[in-house]
Amino acid sequence: MAEGPAKKRRYGSIVLSLACIGVACAVGWSLFGKRLESQASAGRGAVTGSIGMEVARPVGASGFPIPRFVSLKAEKVNVRRGPSSDHPVAWVFQRKGLPVEIVAEFENWRRVRDSDGEEGWILQNMLAGRRTAEIAPWKKGQNVTLLQSPRNGAGMVAKVGSGVVAEVENCDGDWCELSAGGYSGFVEQTQLWGVYPGEKVN
Rank of each mutant, 00 (worst) to 15 (best):
T190D: 10
A26Q: 06
W193L: 08
A166F: 03
C20M: 07
G45R: 04
R80E: 00
R68L: 14
V79M: 04
T190H: 08
I122F: 07
R95S: 14
V92T: 15
V77Y: 03
E119G: 06
I122E: 04
K139F: 07
E177M: 11
A74T: 13
K159M: 09
L98K: 06
D172N: 15
C176E: 01
P150C: 14
V55Q: 09
V27I: 05
A180D: 02
K76R: 12
V92F: 04
R130F: 13
G97A: 10
A136I: 03
R44G: 15
G63W: 11
G43V: 06
V47C: 07
E177Q: 10
S179I: 14
V77Q: 02
C20A: 12
V164E: 11
V59N: 02
R68M: 14
R68T: 06
V103Y: 00
G153P: 07
V79F: 04
G52W: 02
Q191P: 00
F106C: 09
G97E: 08
Y11S: 05
I21T: 15
E54P: 01
G117C: 04
S85I: 01
S17G: 10
G182I: 10
R131E: 07
G43P: 03
S30M: 11
G12R: 03
W193F: 11
K159W: 08
D114N: 14
G60I: 12
E119K: 15
W109D: 12
D114C: 13
M126Y: 12
N108E: 14
E118P: 00
S162H: 04
G155E: 09
Y11D: 05
G63N: 13
V23M: 12
A42G: 15
G181F: 00
E167M: 13
N170C: 14
S179L: 07
E54L: 14
C176T: 04
P67R: 10
A74S: 15
P150K: 05
G141H: 10
R151Q: 11
R57S: 09
N202S: 11
L127E: 02
V144M: 07
E107L: 12
P83W: 01
P197V: 09
I51W: 05
S50C: 04
V47G: 01
E75T: 07
A2M: 02
G82K: 06
C25W: 06
Q94R: 15
V103A: 03
S179P: 02
S179H: 13
T190Y: 05
G163D: 01
P67Q: 11
L178S: 06
S179V: 15
R131G: 01
R80S: 08
R111M: 14
P150I: 14
S41E: 03
G12C: 10
F64M: 15
A154E: 11
I102A: 05
Q94S: 13
G129V: 09
L127W: 01
P67G: 11
V92G: 01
I21G: 13
K8G: 10
Y11F: 13
M126N: 09
V89P: 00
G173S: 09
D86S: 13
F106W: 15
